[in-house]
Design a protein around this nucleic acid. Sequence first.
DNA 1: CTGTTAGCGCCTTCAC
DNA 2: GTGAAGGCGCTAACAG
Lengths: 319, 319
Amino acid sequence: MANIHDVSKAAGVSVSTVSRVLNNHPYVKKEKAEAVKKAIIETGYIPNINAVNLKKGKTHLVGIVLPFLDVPYFSQLVQGISQAASVHQYKLVLYQTGYDEHQEKEALEMLKLKQIDSLIICSRKISLETVEHYQQYGSIVLFENGEDTPLSYTFIDHYACFMRALEYLYEHGHRKIGFSINRLDGANSSQRERAYRDFLKLKGLPFHKEYIFKKCLNIEDGERILREIAAFQERPTAILATSDQVAAGIITSSSKYALKVPHNLAVIGFDDQPIARAMQITSVNIPLYSIGQILFEQAIAEEISHKEVSTELMERSTV
Amino acid sequence: MANIHDVSKAAGVSVSTVSRVLNNHPYVKKEKAEAVKKAIIETGYIPNINAVNLKKGKTHLVGIVLPFLDVPYFSQLVQGISQAASVHQYKLVLYQTGYDEHQEKEALEMLKLKQIDSLIICSRKISLETVEHYQQYGSIVLFENGEDTPLSYTFIDHYACFMRALEYLYEHGHRKIGFSINRLDGANSSQRERAYRDFLKLKGLPFHKEYIFKKCLNIEDGERILREIAAFQERPTAILATSDQVAAGIITSSSKYALKVPHNLAVIGFDDQPIARAMQITSVNIPLYSIGQILFEQAIAEEISHKEVSTELMERSTV
DNA sequence: CTGTTAGCGCCTTCAC
DNA sequence: GTGAAGGCGCTAACAG
């Protein structure tokens, strides 16, 4: 492996000049800069990241905190993050917490110990105060509406897009609407629930506690929903699902209960995953891949920033 | 951040002694070693990985080559790898190739350029010869039966476990058995196909070309299978699915075609994912999480090794 | 057994 | 504009 010395020799300049062109410093004569660039190519020089990191006191590592990886929602997010990371020559450290606060804290500690430069928290259980405490050690970015937290974050307006979907169902004549969420706590879920209650009040519709289906994440949860519904005296005519997977579970098992989608039961999914397109599920598009990229950019940015990402209702054939 | 000097001062020894106890070298007097350990704790010393890496010429980074991350099969594998990596203080670099040979080659190049220490190839399209060529630059491990390749690999005997599943169906009276695969090429698929043909020959059963369903990976592919089957004059009575997702798709849409599982159609999934347990799908257990851990261990090991991992047929209620 | 010391490859003042 | 030189934190001869 050629090093910066080899390049300087090949270009007939000093190592500092090479270093300058490498780091785009001004004040380098054009000819010399050209010579250096040529020498870099000739020698096949690749900077030794370890040396650069040691010198600069950075690791070029960003941590990702998420509960699990084996659900499309998170793995798509990681795809986006990972793509952006490779562009910027950063590497990733995955922290799969399973929503264990202890494990979440461990990731935060890595920041303190300078094992990673920044941390992207895709979903958390640990308190915001605890997270904020660690900001002094490195940049932390959240995938949620952090409101007035001093951390960087990117978020989608779950309240608004849930409301939008509810309105859409209302326009299509639905008055008995149910919805599913995953975690009972969690910022997103509470926003959805708030939107739901506000919506009912707005339309003067009655509240049915049993129309809220909790702990829904996967296909099988969708089936569970339908099983429960089947036993209801008064069934909802539409369901806003936690994710496209849950929606798919509802739809595929609907025929088992002699329900036709959308005729007897309308379904709206979330995330607009490939499965939604394949199954023609009406879904709220959440650009997770792009969000992942944004989160990464925020993670390595100097300044803190807040970004809202917009969603879109994809009308297909399940409403 | 305290460094090795601070520790040596605090312990009243030289830096090399500190380095020695850090690296578990022999020949350090017990008292001094104790003093060093105490000093390490007192000073809150954490080794600077960049410095260690620079010195040792290693990156402590391992690359992972896989086509996509958003399918449970691969993300579970990554979970295992990631878990083992964190134990050994290694970090990951994800290369999502989408089976693009160019991208696969790029990951290999990273090895050559010393950007990563080792590479784990979970699934590939690029030729084995090309991969082998890069072995000189770092350790490469495969998740497939590499037969007599000089690379390390871990594999499961797809031929045998496919045969086992076919036998199981046969024992349950099935004579018209179909199966699905994902890629047409790919080592695993061809092994499965070979097992299938051998099985038919063994039992003196006729070969139906249309009983092989290709490009199946997800739920929706399972539905597609059933749609196709519905149009057959002579339907298979059992399906060996590519994955539990495909199996789930078959099962959930079966009622649409007035088919009862397992009465009219038996289904066996692969991987034994959570969804298989949830839906009581008979499935071939493949311990992906453990396999991920093994792959990682092989990746950082000095010697090359070959490991076979056994599978298990989980009898549930879809046969 | 233990301390001294020379780099690993790079960046960055500091002089010129 | 440019080069020389010090040092980031650590390891591993080498010399005792």
